[in-house]
Simulated scan of single mutants.
Amino acid sequence: MPVIDLCVTKVDEISFKGALDRETVPNIWNKLTKWQPNLSQVKVDLAHVNRIDSAGLVLLLHLIEHAKNQNCHIMFTFVPDQLITLIQLSNVESLFADHINNAKVE
C-alpha cells in the first residue's frame, strides 16, 4: 500500500512525502480538512512526492479551495514534472496558475 506523509515543517510550510494517489488521498484529506491556516500564505513543498495521480491532483485543488475559504493563499513549490503533465492533460492550468512556483525537482 502506498504511503504519504504530511509534515508541517515550518509555521508557513507543509510538505508531502511519498505517493499522492487514490490510495493515500482519503487519509491525507482527513488531516487537511482539520488544518486551519492562520497565515495569508502557506508554501506546500512537493519535492518528495514520488508519485501523483488524478486523485492527488484533485486533492491539491481542494487544498487550494480549503485555504482560500480561510483567506490563505497556497503556493506549491518543487512541483514534479508528473504533476505538471497531469495539470496540462486535465486542462486545469488556470486553476493552478497563481499557485505554482516555477522551481522544479532536479
Rank of each mutant, 00 (worst) to 15 (best):
I14Y: 13
L63W: 06
I14P: 04
L60D: 03
A55D: 01
A67G: 08
D12M: 09
V49A: 10
K17S: 13
V8A: 08
S15I: 04
E65L: 13
Q70P: 09
N27I: 12
L61Q: 14
E23K: 01
P2Q: 02
P26L: 06
Q70L: 14
K31L: 13
K10G: 02
L83P: 01
L89I: 15
E93F: 00
S94L: 12
V105R: 14
A97Q: 14
I74Q: 10
R51A: 14
V44M: 02
T9K: 12
N91E: 02
N102P: 11
G18Q: 04
T85N: 09
A103N: 10
Q36I: 11
L60Q: 06
E106F: 09
V92N: 00
L83C: 06
Q88L: 12
L57K: 01
S15L: 13
V58Q: 10
R51F: 15
Q82N: 10
F96M: 04
S40P: 01
L59E: 01
P26W: 08
Q82G: 08
S54M: 05
V3W: 04
T85K: 12
L59S: 06
I4T: 12
H48Q: 15
S15E: 13
N38A: 07
L95V: 02
P26I: 15
C7P: 02
N69R: 05
H66M: 12
V11P: 01
D98E: 10
I74P: 00
L39D: 06
Q36T: 15
L60R: 02
F76A: 09
R22N: 09
L89E: 09
L32I: 15
V44A: 02
N69H: 09
S90F: 13
A67H: 06
I52C: 11
A55V: 11
K68D: 05
N102M: 07
R51S: 08
L46E: 08
M75R: 11
D81P: 10
L61P: 05
L46R: 10
N38V: 15
L59P: 03
G56S: 11
I14N: 05
N27S: 12
D53S: 11
Q36F: 06
K17Y: 05
N71H: 15
V42D: 03
I64N: 07
H62I: 04
T33E: 15
A55Q: 02
N27P: 01
E23D: 07
A47L: 14
Q88R: 14
E65W: 03
I52D: 14
I14A: 03
D21Y: 05
A67K: 03
N27C: 06
V92F: 10
I4A: 14
K104R: 15
S40H: 07
T33P: 02
I64W: 01
N91L: 09
Q70E: 12
